[in-house]
Amino acid sequence: MLEIKGLRKIYYGKLGGVEALNGADLTVGPGEIIGLFGENGAGKTTLLKSILGFQSYEGKVLLDGEKINRGNIGRLSFATCEHSFFPNLTPLSHREFYRMHFGTFRDKRFEALMDFFELPMRKVLKSYSTGQKNQFEVILALCQGADYILMDEPFAGNDIFNREDFYKVLLGILEPQETIILSTHLIEEVERFVGRAVLLRKGRIVGDVTTLELEEQGRSLKEYIMEIYGYRPDRVNKALGDLTDGGY
């Protein structure tokens, strides 16, 4: 169980402090697939990085009752749109590296995914296309052998067929104890894939609902998010009206 209690993070800059997270509370059980949604600057990336201990924060992050430390950090993996692999190494070298450092590395899964997505094993990663790099980044996160797989907008730059394939493969290969926390803007795409949606707004968790509950209510995820955000569809027409009246 991953428990987040009262998570707070302030970034200090020239114009004072910006509160990226303001008392976020979340409990994630094993085997869940959670979609983390929110507008730009809502605090999604900050939340994921705080869980992994990449930055200081106030509050608590506990993994099965223990703080995240060297002993249990291997149970968390991370895939980011910024990419965390070594660009001058090949996938083969990355496999060696992961084997050396993570005793739970899944060789079979790695080979199967590389084969499925037709990624060359002996080519250095800096020569990969953006889409291929994204795929490889996610493959590494999935094959580390972690129980909690955190993904921060991993599909930025991938085509729709690529993404669809990935969701299907992911659902097929995940084991019952593996948990995914996926931060993305692609609401309609991941709706069929995630089991739970957590909504962030201005550093707070403003919504937490399972897709089953939404189904029972007869609402889509997009409608739910629009309602929570107070999104007004008429504002576009109003803005256009103002602009055209102004002679632009």
Binding site: F78, E82, S84
Partner: peptide, 17 residues
């Protein structure tokens, strides 16, 4: 540089890598 491989390095179980 180029990528943020520091995210991977900071997740390694072994100290001092």
């Amino acid at each position: 540089r180029v990528t943020r491989s520091i995210y991977l390095m900071r997740r390694l179980p072994r100290r001092g890598v």
